[in-house]
């Protein structure tokens, strides 16, 4: 653990990222305290510029406080990011484990399936799914999970392929452990680091994806989110720039910090690779 922290904190960007991420988390937790009531409440006069009418970041076309929207939106963005990542991990890890551990036809089938999902344009598919299953927090999480599991499956498969022939796995097999307990008990824990690194990046892209969906009007109509704020500001950007600018900054900071933290995690978990850290295809 100590090593982990030392390696992590050696990456200055990662530390900055962690601080920003914590700030966003705190904002999300404190939203009901900072801005009691609903972020949808018409608190001031419509189109009040930042600083006027007691509104730190201005108001929107109905007089709703943009700052309150951003604070409450943090909850939704982080929630969607986290839950859809967990769901994508569940799909990706299971399929990757099956392919990597069983090999053969199972591997072939799973990989063809994964390839198919990597081929089709993911954003278009996400739009289609949310539109058809009507926009709600559940359909958004579902759509994001459906389009973001393939990289997980690939990474997990690769790990499993290399781990399954290791001695400790073979030892367990000789001992007659069931396949499931070998996969969960022996292999998975050893494959965890790349999954952890990948997760932080997946949360980031899930937040981006959610904001893009909301921007297109496919957000949950009962949930205030950052993408919604930007989308509702688009048509009046000539009148009220603040409606689009601030929520965008919020998304940017959050996604950036998650990426930085991801790199820090990667450095900390794979110190060997730290130097040549490169692109994330």
């Amino acid at each position: 653990m100590k090593d982990f922290w030392r390696n992590f904190s050696r990456n200055r960007g990662a530390v900055v990222g962690l601080v920003v991420l914590l700030a966003v988390l705190i904002l999300a937790v404190l939203a009901p305290v900072l801005y009691p009531g609903s972020p949808w409440d018409m608190a001031g006069m419509p189109f009040a510029p930042p600083g006027e009418d007691g509104m730190l970041l201005g108001t929107d076309s109905l007089g709703r406080d943009v700052a309150a929207g951003i604070a409450h939106g943090a909850r939704v963005s982080l929630l969607v990011g986290a839950v859809s990542t967990v769901a994508a991990l569940a799909i990706g890890v299971s399929l990757g484990a099956i392919a990597g551990y069983l090999g053969g036809i199972a591997d072939d089938l799973v990989m063809r399936f994964t390839e198919f999902f990597q081929t089709i344009p993911s954003f278009v598919l996400a739009i289609l799914l949310v539109a058809i299953f009507t926009p709600s927090i559940a359909s958004i999480v579902f759509a994001i999970a459906v389009v973001s599991w393939p990289p997980v499956a690939r990474v997990v498969r690769a790990e499993f392929l290399s781990l399954r022939s290791r001695e400790f796995v073979q030892a367990s097999e000789v001992l007659g452990k069931s396949r499931l307990s070998i996969v969960i008990g022996d292999i998975l824990p050893n494959a965890l680091s790349p999954i952890v690194v990948l997760s932080s990046l997946m949360v980031a892209s899930a937040i981006l994806l959610e904001s893009a969906l909301s921007f297109l009007g496919l957000g949950d109509p009962n949930m205030m989110s950052w993408g919604f704020l930007i989308g509702s500001g688009r048509s009046v950007i000539r009148m009220a720039w603040w409606m689009s600018v601030f929520p965008g900054v919020a998304i940017f900071l959050t996604v950036l910090s998650l990426n930085l933290v991801g790199e820090g995690l990667s450095d900390a978990l794979n110190p060997r690779l730290a130097r040549n850290r490169g692109g994330k295809p």
């Binding site: 980031a204 981006l208 904001s211 893009a212 921007f215 993408g227 930007i230 500001g233 688009r234 950007i237 689009s244 600018v245 965008g248 998304i251 940017f252 996604v255 950036l256 990426n259």
Partner: peptide, 10 residues
């Protein structure tokens, strides 16, 4: 890390 659509708006 910047949302595409937001860059466009900016």
């Amino acid at each position: 890390a910047t949302p595409l659509f937001w860059v466009g708006l900016m």
